[in-house]
Design a protein around this nucleic acid. Sequence first.
DNA 1: CATGAATGAGCATTCATTCAT
DNA 2: AATGAATGAATGCTCATTCAT
Lengths: 208, 208, 208, 208
Amino acid sequence: MDSIYNSRKEREKEARKTLILDAAARILSEKDYYEATLDEIAAEAELAKGTLYNYFKDKQDIFESLIARGHTCFEEVLTKTLCEPESLESLIRNILVRLIKVVEENKYMVRLIFYAGAHLSDNEFTMMMKDLTTKWHEASQSLAKVMGQFKETEGLAPEELHTAALLIFAAIDRIIKMSFCNGESCPPKDIDNYVRLLHRSVCTEKTI
Amino acid sequence: MDSIYNSRKEREKEARKTLILDAAARILSEKDYYEATLDEIAAEAELAKGTLYNYFKDKQDIFESLIARGHTCFEEVLTKTLCEPESLESLIRNILVRLIKVVEENKYMVRLIFYAGAHLSDNEFTMMMKDLTTKWHEASQSLAKVMGQFKETEGLAPEELHTAALLIFAAIDRIIKMSFCNGESCPPKDIDNYVRLLHRSVCTEKTI
Amino acid sequence: MDSIYNSRKEREKEARKTLILDAAARILSEKDYYEATLDEIAAEAELAKGTLYNYFKDKQDIFESLIARGHTCFEEVLTKTLCEPESLESLIRNILVRLIKVVEENKYMVRLIFYAGAHLSDNEFTMMMKDLTTKWHEASQSLAKVMGQFKETEGLAPEELHTAALLIFAAIDRIIKMSFCNGESCPPKDIDNYVRLLHRSVCTEKTI
Amino acid sequence: MDSIYNSRKEREKEARKTLILDAAARILSEKDYYEATLDEIAAEAELAKGTLYNYFKDKQDIFESLIARGHTCFEEVLTKTLCEPESLESLIRNILVRLIKVVEENKYMVRLIFYAGAHLSDNEFTMMMKDLTTKWHEASQSLAKVMGQFKETEGLAPEELHTAALLIFAAIDRIIKMSFCNGESCPPKDIDNYVRLLHRSVCTEKTI
DNA sequence: CATGAATGAGCATTCATTCAT
DNA sequence: AATGAATGAATGCTCATTCAT
């Protein structure tokens, strides 16, 4: 009974945290770390400001949790996409399209992805970037591994494949950044161009 | 005599602005917009706080000027590099190496490039991004044009060339981002990989 | 219960506002809008500076509220006096004596009455003056109406009665202004003179 | 030669002071003491800010000089009017009309007359008011003396006459205050009413 | 646990005054 | 005498955090 009670409590606690993070995400779609005030987030979450401190250590904590959530979401989509390798080209296309879609559907992630940490001190910033870099490297490893299974990439060294994966992520970064300001998605034709270029970049045989 | 007098004054005014921007740049290497206070910048510039307002409208103005300076610097290096097209591969390599060097030598630019505008409201942010996007497009056009002169790229549509140029910038973004936190430059071997991949992405004939 | 709870909260909120306004009034007795700082007012109210902002939008708001309070106070005394019309002369005397007393007992009102708006921009100033003028006109109308009921004023046109009421207020203004600096009240003999003159100004029959 | 030189110098100095005061007056028509900055006044006077300090001790000094000038102007008009006593009624009318005209033609005087000293500390304010009170008393004495020469006022005690003079000034105050905000002058009909009331207030014989 | 009033350190900005040229 | 760049004290306002209820 105790354990059940606890687990209900825990579930409720988790639900509250989610509620707060959702509110924070909505605010973050329009403001950055310093412009988003706890007053706003509390109001958006329909909670008192003091209540936030029952679930998060401080403002920073809220935003780090949100960043973590964003990355988890990203990774899930990535992992899922890597499990359905049809062709190398469609793999690249799927990764591009789906990850971009995730971001476009969660506008707040743009700020989190590009500006996460903009407010950190040099040291904290460095540590955060290290953490991010590690995550990107892990993701790249996974992607590189799957790409390596296609025969078009036979001639590539493992590190080159890894770099190729990073280049794909780089393309995603840029597409999001450039389409973000128009309010419109990146045109399919541009996506096609990116896909073709990225595909060609890892093809050692002349197929295109 | 009047014009000479005026020009001396103007030069002195410009020198002071530079002095302040240099100070701001140094502070900006370690702090972001909100953490960097005018007190610090004034102290760093060895001027009274009020003096800053003789040269810049407000805090925002200082940072916008700094961003503008960063972009000018970037563009100059890019333009210079585009004037010496030896081979397609060396062109790509030069752009990568030199632009990365510019940033590494001006550490503050990292924050400016990635976080410029992180503090802006949604509207201001959008406008700034639009401006940046335009600049990137212009730079891409120039780069695409030069790349198009090499016969390896003969089979590429103009828009594909343009996208290829954007992909090169995307790579630079990512290299800077990832190497930034280590304090060490991107290893030459990784650069080699990027160059090879980017080169291959625009080669329509099988040469590699 | 809810309504009781709310009303307690509201009462407490109102009490705090009063507390702050009282503090502001004390400061305002000695300083003007620009010299009175929020630090001082907060200290006088024994509250933190930030607390003031929980009850008033900004500095301006505090002072406008104080002015409003002053006018309400004025109007109440005026209304009460108009309800007890014994004779025309005693009416005039009562208005003079009581309104002057209100101001002397609330020294801060002197500045508010004479300098309310001294710090406003031309436009705001004009608007405020319009508002004040309206209030004075209303008060004059009430006073004129009561004065018109006495047969001594029979020969006066309505507009002349109205002007006569304004003249009474003008006298009050001046008495306050001139006695303010001595720290002593206007001598009763002077009041007598004003009463006699003002009475005579509205008497169309020769009674004095 | 020396004295001539000095007097030219002095005249030039005086001219500069006038230039500055004129500029200050123009600014003061639209702003109050705190809103009017020395930068503005210097710009309006087409002089450098530092130059102001060659002619006036500080900001306060400029404004005190301006107030003094305003009073001198007032007194001149008053004195001149008192020299042409036709009838008691026309005397009162002339004083009202001319003094109001002076102010309407020098809008800045409104702020100076009503708000002069709004920014002063309690002590300075009191001293200034004492000074002003003295001046008003002197002016009232002069006016009372002239009014006393008309036989309509025969029955009035000297102090009552003095108070009557103050009442006339009070009326002027109020007329200016109330017409100030409309941008239009006080309608002649209202002036007529004031004149009639003020005249009647000092008439001990039944003539009206 | 939830609340939200109170806190007060922190910051951008203004402006009278000074002084070297 | 004239200049105007430099100064820096002063101030209104914000907002993360605390804590009594």
